[in-house]
Every structure is written in C-alpha cells, then in structure tokens.
Nucleic acid binder design. Structure first.
Lengths: 203, 203, 203, 203
DNA sequence: AATGAATGAGCATTCATTCAT
DNA sequence: AATGAATGAATGCTCATTCAT
C-alpha cells in the first residue's frame, strides 16, 4: 500500500474512493465488501491493496474526505449570504443540499460510531469548531447574544443533523431525485435558531 | 422461535436481551456474534433461536425496548418539574442520565441506521411525537411562542442527541463511572432552548 | 423408547408414523426435521423419543410399513383378475393407484438408497420375490415361456417403477387429485410385458 | 462465482467436480459437506465458491455431467454392435460398465429425486429420448414390432436401472473391483427385451 | 404418557487479505 | 500497475437428542 506514483494510479485510487462512497452508503460498512467496491470501481480485487492498507483504512479516508467536502460546501454556501443571518441560513441550505447529493454524510457517519469512532469524532469536532469560531466572532461583534460558542455550536449542529435526517434522508429513495428541506420547515428552523442565539437574558 | 411458555423460559429470554444490550453496545451489531451474546447470557447457542428468529430480530426488539425505557425515563423525569421550564430541563437531565447508564441508546441507534432503519425511525418518531405534543399544549397555553411543534420537536431532539453524544458518550470510558453533563453546559443549553421557544417574532 | 403400553400411546405412535409419511415425502429425509414431524402429528417434540429410538429408526419403520402396504395393495389388486394376464395387469394398476395415493413409495424409497440402504434393499427384494414366485408358478403351468423368474421379476419391477415415476409421480402436483397412468400407456406396457414373457425362443 | 479465466482455475474446478462425484456417491448429498469435498479435492474451502454458487449448484452440475458421460458411453458402446440386436445388448453392457465405474449414476440420481428434481428429470428424459429415437427408427425399418417408442423407451430404461442396481450396485463394495452383470443375467434380460419388442400382435 | 426447554455439534457461506504472474 | 486465484477463519443458523417436570 502506497501513494499512487503515476497519473493512472491516481485515477484508479480516485475511482475506488468514489465507488466506496456509493457502496458504503447503500449497503453499510459490513455489507460493502471489498469485492463489491472494486467491482463498482471497475478494478481488480487485488488493486485495492495497492492504495489502501485495509477496508477500515479506506473507510476512514472516506470519512475524512466527506468531512472536507461538506465543510467546503457549507462555507461556500455561507459566503453567499450578505448579512450574518443570511449567511447562517445559506450555510444550512448548503449542508442540506450536500446531504441530498451525498446521503453518505449521514449514513456513513452514523455507522462510523462503531466502526471508526476516532474518525467520526474528528468529523463532528471540525464542524463544531468551525461553527464555534463564527459564533464567537458574532458574539464579539454583538450580532448575537452572550451565548457559549461551544455549546451553541453543538446545539446548532444537532439541529442540522436531525432536521436533515428527517427531511432530507428519509424521504430520499435511492435513485430518485434528491429532495430539499421544505421552505416552511427551513424558515421555522431558522426562526428557532435566531431566537436561541439572540437571547440576551433568560431564566 | 416463539414466546416462552414457562417462567424459566421467560427468565432465559430476559437474560438474552440484557446480554444483547451490553454486547451490541460494546462491540456493535456485526462484532456482536450470537455466540458472544449467548455466552454473556450464560445460555447455549441454540437457546437463542428458541426466542428470536434471527440476530436481526433481537436487534430490533432491543431498539424497541430501549425506546420504551428511554421515553419512560424522560417522562418520569419531566414529571418532577413544577413549572414547564423546569419540567423541560428535568426531562433532558433524565435523558442524559439514562444515556449515561445505557450508552446503547446512542450506539445501537446510530448503527440501526444501516441495520434496521425502520426500527430506528420508529425510535426517533416516537420521541419527536411526544415532544411535539407537549410543545403544542404549551403553545396553546401561551407558555411558549408561536412555534411549529413538529419542527421544534425535531430540533430539540437534535440538540439533546448531539449534546448527549459530546458530553455523555464521549467522555464515557467503558467500566468507568457514568458522567453527567456539566451543569454549565446544561444551563447554556437550556438557555438556548428557552430563547428558541419564547421567540415571539422573527425575521 | 419402547412399545406403547396403552391405547392412547398406540394412537400417538400411529399419528407420528402417518405424519412422517407426509413430511418425508414432501420434504425428504433431511429437511423433515423431528420438530416438523411432531408438529404435523400434533404432539410434543419429546414425545417422539417415547416410540422411536431416532429419526433414522422411524424412517426405517416407515420404509417397512410402506413396503407392507404396497404389497398388500398389489396382491389384493391381482386377486381381482380371473386369468393370469388379467391378474398381472390388475396388479400393476393397483401399484399405480397406491403410488398415486402414496408418492412416498417413490420418493422415500429413492432417498433410502443413501439413508437406509438395508431397508431399501429389503423393499425391492420382497417385491421381487413375490413377482418371482408368481412367475415361476406360471412357467411351470406353461402359462408363460421359459424365462428365468428372478431376472424377469426384477425387469418387471423396473418397468413398473419407471412408468410409475414418469406417469404417476411427475404429473402429480401436491394437493392435486392423484393421476392415473393413461389407459393407452398401460396397454402398451402390458403388451410389452406379455411379449417378453411369452417368448418361447429368441435370437 | 464464475467461470475460471485461467488454466490453473480450470484445473481447480475440474478437481472439485471429480472429488464431488466420489464424495456425493460415497456419503450422499447431505453428509457430503463442502469441507469434505474441498479436502478431497485438495483445495481450500473458500475456493469452492469461486466456481460454484452453492453446494446445490455443484450437485446439479454433477447430475448433468454424469448424464452426459453415461449417454456418451452408451452410444459408443452401441456403435460397436453390427446388428440392431447386438447394438442394443452392447449399449446395455456399456451402461452397466459405466455404472460399475461410476456408482454415482445410481446413487446420485436416486437422491436427486429430493435434492434436485428438475435435474433428475432431465437425466431420465434425455436417456429416454435417445432410446425412443432408436426404437422409432427400428420400428419404421421393420426391425421391431409396432410398439409405442416412448412407452418402450421408459420400460427399457426401467429394466436397465433395476438390473443395474441389483447386479452392479449392490454387489459393489467401495474400493473393490467393479463387478459385471453375470452373462446369464444379461442374456436373460436381452431375451426378455427382444420378446417384448418383437411382439407383432397381442391381446 | 407427555412435553417444552435446553444444548452443542455441524454446516453452508462470506470475506478480508495474500500472492504469483 | 494490475489482477485473478486462493485461503481459512469466522458466523448465523439448524437440528437430533436429552432431561426435568
């Protein structure tokens, strides 16, 4: 197992990761045998071990890859909002859109709890850190109330996860056009979030 | 496979379910072989199939069982609060306490996404329905703002899940005394929730 | 395991044998578990071992039982023919009728080759002996040619088996009315047999 | 499971089929575990599933393989006879010789009744069709009487089966030199057959 | 006489991984 | 770089049989 040394090798590795995302997402970690992944990728079974030390190694690589891509999508989304509140909503919209395209971001991550716990923690911690950073800046700028950025970050992430699972993943039938979270739901959700963050004092 | 017809049989079945909660939680669905479960339960391997049609059948039974118990714990907890806000906080505390005792409520459920998706949906839907009912009553009574009870229910559940995973499950080392969510975190979390629900108007 | 000592016990044993004929015939020796047989018989699983030492013991008992009954049916059939030729045809007709009612006489016997070879040999040898005896008497009486009764007996039995399998067993769908060998086929078959037996000289 | 793509693979598959004929014949379908077959073939247990989808799949392949070989042997045998009657006797001799070498042709086929009924029917139907064709030609040529070729074909096949079982299979002890049907028995049998087929008129 | 509970041996099948080419 | 062949450990499940009641 080693890094590809030629363009052909790099392409082969890329195809294996792409196949893995599909197969892990459709069938879960255990059902997704190395054979099925290599068949989907159109390479021989032995080829797998040129680029990955083990099935678990590939899984962890996929977790990290998904994490990188979902954060990228979210920050690009958020960049399109002109106000803080708009950026926030746009970030969530981008997350839901990514999840609709890549249900693996739910399915693989949830299974990762048992399969690759460290990789799974990294995933959530990175997203939370990113949220927390934005919240802290907003707090300092007085755009939101005096909330604890870390707790708020995890709370917001939990809301996104659960709403996404409920309104993106579950209506999603494999092969069907990916659904969007209904506008009314998204609006209600953002209203709750703004209420939570704007709170200046409380009981 | 059938229901036990004697007291001895009922006791045997109970021991298998208890063993399964431990083993599934520690090792995950795939690693938790039927042999390991029956050894933990102290019964023969074949005995398993007197009471469960398959390993999956037991898993689904466990999901439903955990769901029943966690809802029971939450409603008992909530009953101890005298005001609505106190009841809410007490419900979350009860949830976190249950999760500390039964980490399976996170681990098994997350894995259920791939293993027994229908059972897993039932779990979340039942909890959400319970939350939504309480929120609707509070809304009608004017105790909270004019929120959509269903969206709010899923949002609250997401917060509980994520905070629980971060502050109960992760610090939890198997065998070690079960941790509590730090008071400061719980307070911050409740403050966010109250802010979200009390919102009277919004952008 | 022992003989029943009461009328109730005798009835229980009878029900087990009757259930076994059905289940062995439908599912084969291996698929026919003791549990399935006792369920069909409407008795408890342990009850089986009051009357049979093992599953194999029951199977052998069933082979012998079927053998007794098929020979009984054939000799009763043959007794209805007034001439030798008529008796012969009537014997075959009775065999086919029995086989239609009791496909086990094919299915169980064929499987017995591997499961209980001694019992299976007894079955064929007894029928052959019976045929041979009749043929020898007919030969002495000059009713048939100078054939070797033993070879002829096995040949006739082979014809009956194969024609029965082809025209009784195969058209037979479980649950459907039992078929008869078409008259034209039976006539052709008897013509061949008479030709074979009447042969006085040959190349 | 797929066809071998290299010479090495083809050789491995061949060894598995050869081992299967022995083991199925000696021990029967159920006792012949995949492990026992692969041990006899000298390959790993998993290798089996490279070439066969299941134990049953191999069994059916073996039934078809035996059928092909026994028909080949019979037609080669028959080709050595110069007259029709001689060809017929030579065909039976070839069948008995094959059966002596390959008792599986009885044992496997008889068990196939329960295990793989469709494959077993194919076996008998192919042989019968072959017989019937020859008989029809002989009938048209006036070499035999006016018999129904299909009924006669099944009758002849039944004779061959039963005589073969009685005088080839049963005297056969595994490992011992393969027996031949005694000449006297074969002569008697052919005499019966000629009598049957030459019949010009009958009741 | 009858039975339901219990068991452990046995088996078909899957699969991650290694290796020779 | 690529691959198909090979493997053996692991596992879910079945089942004949025993036994306490």
């Amino acid at each position: 197992m080693s890094e590809p040394r030629t363009a052909r090798g790099a392409e082969t590795k890329r195809r294996i990761v792409a196949a893995a995302e599909e197969v892990f997402s459709e069938q879960g970690y255990q059902q997704a045998s190395v054979l099925r992944i290599t068949e989907r990728a159109g390479v021989g079974q032995g080829t797998f071990y040129l680029y990955f030390a083990s099935k678990l190694d590939l899984f962890e690589a996929l977790v990290d890859d998904l994490n990188r891509r979902v954060r990228q999508a979210m920050s690009e989304g958020a960049a399109r909002g002109s106000t803080r509140a708009e950026a926030e909503a746009a970030g969530f919209r981008a997350f839901f859109a990514f999840a609709a395209e890549h249900p693996a971001v739910f399915r693989v991550m949830r299974e990762a709890e048992q399969v690759a716990p460290a990789a799974m923690r990294r995933h959530y911690e990175r997203i939370a850190a990113s949220y927390a950073e934005g919240l802290e800046a907003a707090r300092v700028a007085g755009e939101i109330g005096d909330v604890d950025p870390e707790v708020a970050a995890w709370a917001l992430m939990g809301i996104g996860e659960m709403v996404g699972m409920r309104w993106v993943l579950w209506p999603h039938q494999d092969g069907e056009t990916a659904p969007q979270v209904p506008k009314a739901v998204l609006d209600q959700m953002m209203r709750l979030i703004h209420g939570a963050l704007d709170a200046k004092e409380d009981a």
